[in-house]
Simulated scan of single mutants.
Amino acid sequence: MYRFLLSRQWVILTLVALALIPTMIELGFWQLHRHEHRVALNEVIGDSLAAEPVPAESLTSPGAKVDDADLYRRVTATGRFDRAGEVVVRRRTNADDRVGYHVLTPFVLDDGKVLLVNRGWVPSNGASQTAFPEVPAPPAGETTVTGRLMPDQTTEDSGIKNVEGLPDRQVMLIDSEQQAERLGKQVLGGYVELTDPGPVGDTPELIAEPDHDGIGNHMAYAVQWWLFAAGVPVGWFVLVRREARDRASQDEQDTAEAAEPAAV
């Protein structure tokens, strides 16, 4: 009755089903890991935002990589903004999803090292994507800043391609090593999203605090993939039974037709 399973069509169908089951199980675990990563990241962000600010140089140094545990950690530093070394980061959106720039200003510390400070978002100059935007000046003189410590941006993490040949003083990603080479100074690894001093008059729009409450739909997607994996053998079994039933019915019909007396 089940010899049809050895046919080319059913062998291919069975092999596809066997391949789908582990693939769907793996996709479910991938979504589970994304869920666990999101939960852990939310915890890190929440703890970092709730902690008291610490000196920036206690968590990073020239050429260093910002630890995952220090992501969004509030840090402080005292020094002077170097507006001459300021650049803008292209294709960044604000809370209203308007496209513009982030303003990246070197902040020279008392020991001569540089901390990169993302002062916030500014709009582009009309439809121009090449002209340097109008950027309000940073505070003059010695200033104490507070902000959220962030790691260097990469294409892998951000999905933004680091395009070359950009207009003068414009970059795609915030890279402390790249800025150290450009400035010819020691630049602390990572950068800071400014939170204080807050906006006063015509200043860049500060970057909003990250959402650390939502966990997304990754767990639901994981369960869905596992249900799909469980459904594959069930579906295969149903198709086999249906095919066997149809073939048996056809065989009975053929037998009945063969047993009928020939017409005179």
Rank of each mutant, 00 (worst) to 15 (best):
I21F: 01
T23S: 07
I25C: 09
E26T: 15
F29L: 12
W30Q: 12
Q31N: 06
Q31S: 04
L32T: 02
H33R: 15
H33V: 09
H33Y: 12
R34Y: 01
H35M: 02
H37D: 14
V39S: 08
V39A: 11
L41T: 07
L41M: 07
L41C: 00
N42G: 07
N42C: 01
N42A: 04
N42H: 02
E43I: 13
V44H: 10
V44M: 10
I45H: 01
I45C: 02
G46R: 09
G46A: 08
G46H: 06
S48L: 09
S48H: 10
S48A: 14
A51H: 05
A51D: 06
P53V: 02
V54R: 06
V54T: 08
P55S: 05
A56F: 00
S58W: 03
S58Q: 10
S58P: 05
L59I: 03
L59T: 03
T60H: 05
T60D: 02
S61H: 14
P62Q: 11
G63D: 12
G63E: 12
A64K: 13
A64G: 12
K65A: 15
V66E: 10
V66W: 08
A69L: 14
D70E: 10
D70K: 12
D70C: 07
D70N: 15
L71Q: 13
L71E: 11
Y72D: 08
R74Q: 14
R74G: 12
R74W: 09
A77Y: 00
A77E: 03
T78D: 07
T78F: 04
R80D: 10
R80I: 08
F81G: 06
D82W: 00
R83L: 12
A84E: 13
A84N: 11
V87W: 06
V89R: 14
V89L: 14
R90L: 04
T93A: 10
T93M: 11
T93H: 10
A95C: 07
R98N: 15
R98M: 12
V99N: 13
V99L: 13
V99E: 11
V99H: 11
G100I: 02
G100N: 04
Y101L: 03
Y101R: 08
H102K: 09
H102G: 07
V103N: 06
V103R: 10
L104I: 07
T105N: 03
F107D: 04
V108G: 06
V108N: 04
L109H: 08
L109F: 03
L109Y: 04
L109D: 06
D110C: 02
D111N: 13
D111C: 07
G112S: 09
K113C: 08
K113A: 15
L115Y: 05
V117H: 03
N118Y: 00
N118V: 02
N118R: 08
R119K: 13
R119S: 12
G120L: 02
V122P: 06
V122I: 05
